[in-house]
C-alpha cells in the first residue's frame, strides 16, 4: 500500500531563498537586532541605578570597565554599527530606484565601512579598557 501523508504532515521541502548576500545580510540583521534589543533592556536598567544612589551606579558601571566586559562592548558596538549601516542599505533597497539592482555591491560597501569604523573604534576603546 503506498504511503500517504496527511496534509498536516507535509513539510515544505527547500526554500525560495538562495542563501546569498541578500539572505545572509537579512540573517545578520535579525541576529544583531535581537542582541542590541536585549542589551538595551539591561542598559536602561543599569542607568536607572542613578536614581538609587551614586554608589550603586558607580558599582555597576565599574563592572562595565573590566577587560571581559570591554570585549563585550566591542562586540556590542560591532553589532550596532553593522545593524546601522545595513539598515541604511535596506532603506536604499526600498526607496532608491537603483537599490534592488545594487543591493549586493551595497552590502560590500556596508562591510567595508563597518571594518573601517571597527578598526578605529577597537584601537580607541581597547586603549581605554586596557590602558588604565
Amino acid at each position: 500500500m503506498p504511503k500517504t501523508l496527511s496534509p498536516s504532515k507535509l513539510i515544505p521541502a527547500g526554500t525560495l531563498y538562495r542563501g546569498r548576500e541578500g539572505q545572509w545580510s537579512w540573517v545578520a540583521h535579525r541576529i544583531t537586532g535581537v542582541v542590541i534589543f536585549f542589551f538595551l533592556l539591561v542598559h536602561v536598567l543599569d542607568t536607572s541605578l542613578v536614581r538609587v544612589s551614586p554608589e550603586a551606579y558607580d558599582a555597576v558601571i565599574g563592572a562595565y570597565k573590566n577587560p571581559i566586559m570591554g570585549l563585550g562592548e566591542l562586540g556590542l558596538v560591532a553589532a550596532i554599527v553593522f545593524h546601522a549601516f545595513n539598515g541604511i542599505r535596506v532603506i536604499l533597497v526600498d526607496f532608491w530606484k537603483q537599490g534592488p539592482k545594487y543591493h549586493r555591491q551595497m552590502l560590500w560597501g556596508v562591510l567595508g565601512l563597518w571594518a573601517l569604523v571597527m578598526i578605529a573604534f577597537s584601537i580607541r576603546h581597547l586603549s581605554h579598557v586596557f590602558g588604565g
Binding site: 558601571i61 570597565k65 580607541r124 576603546h125 581605554h128
Partner: peptide, 13 residues
C-alpha cells in the same frame, strides 16, 4: 565611548 576618557570616564558625575 570615544571622546575624552571613553568608558573609563563614565560614572555618576
Amino acid at each position: 565611548l570615544v571622546a575624552g576618557d571613553g568608558i573609563s570616564g563614565i560614572d555618576f558625575g
